[in-house]
Structure formats: structure tokens, C-alpha cells
Design a protein around this nucleic acid. Structure first.
Length: 490
RNA sequence: GGGCCAUUAGCUCAGCUGGUUAGAGCAUCCGCCUUUUAAGCGGAGUGUCGAAGGUUCGAAUCCUUCAUGGCCCA
């Protein structure tokens, strides 16, 4: 290396080192396997068992402390960090000089004897080393890590290297998914996969992404919900069925919204929304205890108590308590906008009655629901797929679960009256024609399935990303999705 | 869509009431160092100050527009 090296970029310096290694007969990308006999964390935590024995460890170099003819080289593998010690008189000058061409970020394998240093650090005294891969780019600075939030999402691998706590969030995410699958298996549910590409994106109200199938010569849409296909499977006799899958909504991006996110939807025949409440409480209470050994989990400064039972709050009654207004007295779009104005709630003037009422509930009822709470008894006119309450036919057998003021789950006694369902779809078409472009088109194929007969069924949808946020104390949905949707760099 | 904020070295950041040649730590490069661990000691270079215009004798700094991102609102 000459004194002119400062004129080269970090990448150019590393390319020169790569070339130098090759000139010495070492090909850093040739190694295909390295027989690892111990993980870093094992050697450290089980030092007594490993002391004096030879181990083979492999990992990324995260620190180099050189002391002339000896050096401490930290390696990081999937389990953690271990220190290795390289001595020129042990390795021989030619091997020891490899250090001149190694950088932070390179992968090496080290074989050597386990010992403890004066400072009582468990260390591998290298007897043989092997270059396993060279890194051509600098890693983020180690003291502060990578804090540029944009880069953390765009180059998540650097975030994972620099900020070890990030990995913990995704480990919990994986554990949550595993627990849900285990729980549902225990209750006799079958996991299925249904189409992502659909000719009609229904099951909720949202703008879909549109694409085009060349061979069929027709537009297709990415699903916005799992609902309508899973109900077809209920019709087909799979009495307990669920899917955990990605759904796509062509809407804004925020700390709570990513255009693609993960939903759990499950359907159980011969039960209703009360059954779904019991299942939801049992699932979530058990999950918290499984993850943390306690049902009390902190979220953004508040402790959430996940243990069942959760309070049931009647939406219409709570709205009346908060505003003095009964939902059924708001008959028109104009009434709804007038109420919003009286309450000082800003709404899009183009909103129809149901959209305005939804906004009002969101503003006056939902923020108070910090501890897990079932908000139930939604009006039928905002619940097009839910059964009517026989005692109050304008209200639906439906609930939404709120936690930390946000909707986490949505469930109902599924509407299985094909004629009522058709009428509700027709109402949606009126709203669609009136300009509400979140309304799905009428789905004749689904109605055909319903007309063949669907048993009484309880259904539940639950936002996995929001659940992971709550369980990992993450303020943004981007903290629980490895690669959130980002505008590409120019 | 609206408001506020941010963008300076590979990374984390200072500098901003306009004023000499834009700084620090980590990382990098050179030299020394065989039990260090934010190793240490000595030396060196970091750069289209997000982009384009404008004001000015003079702009990282002030103004405008744009780009990207963040937070809040819709």
C-alpha cells in the first residue's frame, strides 16, 4: 500500500486488497463451505466445556485491534460475538499478514483453542484461518450504529448488522406467526392459500392495485382482503379455515400503513361473533404469556393488559354517551356532515353518510380504547358482510378489537343470507356510482357460492403487522416489515 | 393534498446572526506496538455542504423552486 492510498475511495482500497489476496494465491470467493463446530454464543456461555479444546468458528469481522505481531479479531455469527486472537508466532508470518488485506465486514473461519484473556474474555487462539468472503463496502460506524431512518429501511441488512435490537423485533414476529399457527391447529383449523390475483378485489372497501394478464387479455387486481375466498371454502365444507397472507391496498403510506401488509383471516362454522370474541381473547392473552411470561406488555409508555376477558363496548351506546346523538337519527349524508361540523371533526366534503359516521366514531370513541376492548354492535350500513342482530335489525353482529386506540381485529357473524347479501352489494354499487371509489364491484361469483348454502359462521380478521407493533413496542409499521415500500432513489 | 423539520466525509454529527483554506469522533491510509476490547501512540487525506436558480464584493449559511425522507394533519 502506498502513501497515495488516500486518493482512493474505500471501495477502491478494498478492491486493491482483494487483488493483493489473489496475487498471494488466496481466492476470497472460492470457499464453498466451512465446517463450524461451535457458535460464538455457545463458546462464550459454555466456556468451561470448551476451555482448552479446539473449535472452528466463522463469521463477519466486526472489530480488529492490532498490536503489532498479535491482534484481537472479533467475529460475529448468527448467535453473537466472539473474540479471536491471532499471533504471528502461532500462525506464521505469511498467514498473519493476511490481516493487511482484511477489513471490517469480511468473513473468515478461525480454528483454534479456547482460552480466557487476562481481562477474562473468552477467546479463540487462532491456529488456522481461512478467508471465506471479502466485503467491498464499509459497514456503518459502530458507536452510533445506523440511524438514518431512510437508509435503515432501504438497506435493512445494514440496519441488522449495526442495530442488533432490530433483529429481536423480527424474531418476535416469527414467534407470533408460529404461535398463531400452533394455536389454530390446536383448535382444528386448516391453513390454506387463496388467490392474490383476483378479477374482483372485494371483502372490504379499499382501492386495489391493478395489473393486467396478457394471455387472458384482462385486468386483474391484487387482493385487498382474504374474506370472500375463505367463505367459499366454508361453503365447500372446510368448517375451520384460515389464511395468513399479504394483502394490498392502494392507499397512502404512514407510520400505520404500508401498501402491502399481512392479515390473518379465519372462519369457523357453527359459531358467531361471540365465539370469535372468545377465540380472540384466548389467542392474544395466550400469545402475550407465551412471548413474555406475562400478559402485561408495555407499548409506548402504557402497559397493555392482554389477559382476557376484554370489555365489550356497544358502539351506538358509546356514541350516544359521547355526543348525545343516536346513530339511527342520522339518516342522511347532510345530517352526518352537520354532526361532524358540530363536533368539530374535519371530514372530506365528498364523504357519504357511512364514511362520515366512521370518521366520527374514529374521533370520539376509538381513542379512549387503550386497553383491549371489543367495540361491537356496528350499524348494518357500514357492515355489508355481517349478520343482523335479530333484536335490532339495523345493527350487525360485529365487533372490532381496539388496542392503544387502534383497530387490531374485525369480526362478525358472517352474513349467509344470499338475498340480503345481494341487496347489500347493490347498496354498495349505489355508493360506487355516487363516487365512492373504494366500493368493490358486485361479486356475482361469491353470491353464487352463497346461494349454494353457507352454514352459520363466525369470521375474524386480524392485522399481523399491528399486532407485532404492539408486542414489540414499535411506533411505526416500518419497524416490523423488513422491506417497507419506499420510493426508489433516482 | 396541507403544515413543520431534515439533507454537510464511508458512518454519526458540529458549523448556519453571510466573511480567510468547511471541522470532530469512528472508519480509511502510513508508522510503532504480542492479552486488547470505544485498545493505545505518532502522522495523512477525507467533501459536487441533496439539486437547480437567485440575492451579494462574497453563500454550507439568506431567498425561490425541485428532489428525497421524517413527524403531524387530511
Amino acid at each position: 500500500m502506498s502513501e497515495q492510498d488516500h486518493r482512493f475511495s474505500p471501495r477502491e482500497v478494498r478492491l486493491q486488497k482483494l487483488q493483493h489476496l489473489r496475487e498471494r494465491g488466496i481466492e476470497p470467493y472460492r470457499a464453498t463451505r466451512y465446517e463450524v463446530t461451535a457458535l460464538a454464543e455457545q463458546v462464550v456461555s459454555q466456556f468451561e466445556a470448551y476451555e482448552g479444546h479446539v473449535v472452528r468458528v466463522a463469521g463477519r469481522i466486526t472489530a480488529m485491534r492490532r498490536h503489532g505481531r498479535a491482534a484481537f479479531i472479533d467475529l460475529r455469527d448468527t448467535s453473537g460475538r466472539i473474540q479471536t486472537h491471532w499471533r504471528e508466532d502461532v500462525l506464521g508470518p505469511s498467514t498473519y499478514e493476511l490481516l493487511d488485506d482484511l477489513d471490517l465486514g469480511d468473513f473468515v473461519g478461525v480454528e483454534g483453542t479456547v482460552f480466557k484473556t487476562r481481562r477474562q474474555e473468552v477467546t479463540v487462539e487462532a491456529q488456522a484461518v481461512e478467508v471465506l468472503a471479502k466485503s467491498l463496502r464499509d459497514l456503518p460506524e459502530k458507536r452510533h450504529g445506523l440511524t438514518n431512518i431512510d437508509l435503515r429501511y432501504r438497506q435493512r441488512y445494514l440496519d441488522l448488522i449495526a442495530n442488533p435490537e432490530v433483529r429481536r423485533v423480527f424474531e418476535i414476529r416469527a414467534e407470533i406467526l408460529a404461535y398463531i399457527r400452533e394455536f389454530l391447529k390446536g383448535r382444528g383449523f386448516m391453513e390454506v392459500e387463496t388467490p392474490v390475483l383476483q378479477t374482483i378485489a372485494g371483502g372490504t372497501e379499499a382501492r386495489p392495485f391493478e395489473t393486467y394478464h396478457n394471455a387472458l387479455g384482462m385486468p386483474l387486481y391484487l387482493r385487498i382482503a382474504l374474506e370472500l375466498h375463505l367463505k367459499r371454502l366454508i361453503v365447500g365444507g372446510i368448517d375451520r379455515v384460515y389464511e395468513i397472507g399479504r394483502v394490498f391496498r392502494n392507499e397512502g403510506i404512514s407510520t400505520r400503513h404500508n401498501p402491502e401488509f399481512t392479515m390473518l383471516e379465519l372462519y369457523q362454522a357453527y359459531t358467531d361473533f361471540h365465539g370469535m370474541m372468545e377465540l380472540t381473547e384466548s389467542l392474544l392473552g395466550g400469545l402475550a404469556v407465551h412471548l413474555f411470561g406475562t400478559p402485561d406488555v408495555p407499548y409506548q409508555g402504557t402497559v397493555i393488559h392482554w389477559a382476557p376477558p376484554y370489555p365489550r363496548v356497544d358502539l351506538v351506546e358509546r356514541l350516544f354517551e359521547k355526543t348525545g346523538v343516536r346513530w339511527e337519527t342520522i339518516q342522511s349524508r347532510e345530517d352526518a356532515h352537520a354532526l361532524a361540523q358540530r363536533l368539530g371533526i374535519q371530514v372530506d366534503p365528498r364523504f357519504d353518510r357511512a364514511q362520515v359516521m366512521d370518521k366520527i366514531v374514529g374521533a370520539v370513541v376509538e381513542p379512549d380504547l387503550v386497553q383491549p376492548t371489543f367495540l361491537w354492535h356496528h350499524p348494518v350500513d357500514i357492515s355489508p358482510l355481517a349478520k343482523r342482530d335479530p333484536q335490532a335489525p339495523h345493527l350487525a353482529e360485529r365487533f372490532e378489537l381496539f388496542v392503544a386506540g387502534r383497530e387490531l381485529a374485525n369480526a362478525f357473524s358472517e352474513l349467509n343470507d344470499p338475498l340480503d347479501q345481494r341487496q347489500r352489494f347493490i347498496e354498495q354499487q349505489k355508493a360506487r356510482l355516487a363516487g365512492n371509489d373504494e366500493m368493490p364491484p358486485l361479486d356475482e361469483d361469491f353470491l353464487l357460492a352463497l346461494e349454494h348454502g353457507m352454514p352459520p359462521t363466525g369470521g375474524l380478521g386480524l392485522g399481523i403487522d399491528r399486532l407485532v407493533m404492539l408486542m414489540t413496542d414499535s411506533p411505526s409499521i416500518r419497524d416490523v416489515i423488513f422491506f417497507p415500500t419506499m420510493r426508489p432513489l433516482a
